[in-house]
Write a protein that binds this DNA or RNA. Structure first.
Length: 209
DNA sequence: AAGTTTATCAACCGCGATACG
DNA sequence: CCGTATCGCGGTTGATAAACT
């Protein structure tokens, strides 16, 4: 038996939201708050599935959203975070107040990818394109396939990204916050615009294999 | 001016994770 | 512990605007 559909497709609207639908959704959430997306459409009088309502609210209607162009600082921050976390858009978005994962993902795919390529950096690996091409050639020559280097230095971040099997003894990490500008847990620089919490580091250590 | 191509971004889909009975 | 329901994430699609021929 397969998964049941998230909603009754025959009786739900799809595609672009109308002004009236937006207003209904906003009004409902203002009164009842977020949550229980499954039952929200019926309660709000919307012919939409809960998933669609959630997406519309999170990506477009939330009052704390910062609309408009990304700043140079945001650009660089996204690049750095992507270097650390990969396509973990929700984690990246969590470090950019007012920006959504969907917005960042779109921005990455349409702007930043091209920007990095024009700098000669591979957007997927954050390594110089030339270096990758050379490595590939080297491996083909040696008959090696399918194994990336186990660790490397990200030149921009000056952080070591280690890819290794989970260790038997869990790494104990202090609950510290690292500044992205100076990389210190005892940041004294002015910016401290990115507090890289150990939660993010934990995530990286546990999942970025 | 009309047709075509490209860029942008809102929205959808499928699936894994988690909660719950 | 197991099966089901729901949530949330990431990849992808499609509509539309803008740029180009």
């Amino acid at each position: 038996m397969g998964r049941s559909p998230c909603c009754e497709k025959a009786h739900t609207n799809k595609g672009a939201w109308t002004k009236e639908e937006d207003e209904r959704l906003i009004a409902h959430i203002k009164v009842h708050g977020e949550g229980c997306w499954r039952s929200l459409p019926k309660a709000a009088g919307l012919l939409r599935c809960g998933k669609s309502c959630r997406l519309r609210w999170i990506n477009y209607l939330r009052p704390d959203l910062k609309r408009g162009n990304f700043t140079q600082e945001e650009d660089e921050l996204i690049i750095k975070l992507h270097g650390l976390l990969g396509n973990k858009w929700s984690l990246i978005a969590a470090r950019l107040p007012g920006r959504t994962d969907n917005e960042i993902k779109n921005y990455w795919n349409t702007h930043i990818k091209r920007k990095l390529l024009s700098r000669g950096i591979d957007p997927a690996t954050h390594r110089p394109v030339m270096e990758l091409a050379e490595k590939k050639e080297e491996k083909v020559g040696n008959g090696e396939v399918g194994h990336e280097a186990s660790s490397w230095q990200c030149p921009d971040l000056n952080l070591e990204l280690c890819i290794s099997p989970p260790s038997q003894e869990p790494v104990k990490m202090e609950k510290t916050t690292l500044c992205f500008s100076c990389g210190s847990s005892e940041c004294k620089c002015d910016t401290n615009f990115l507090g890289l919490s150990s939660g993010v580091l934990d995530y990286r250590n546990e999942h970025m294999k």
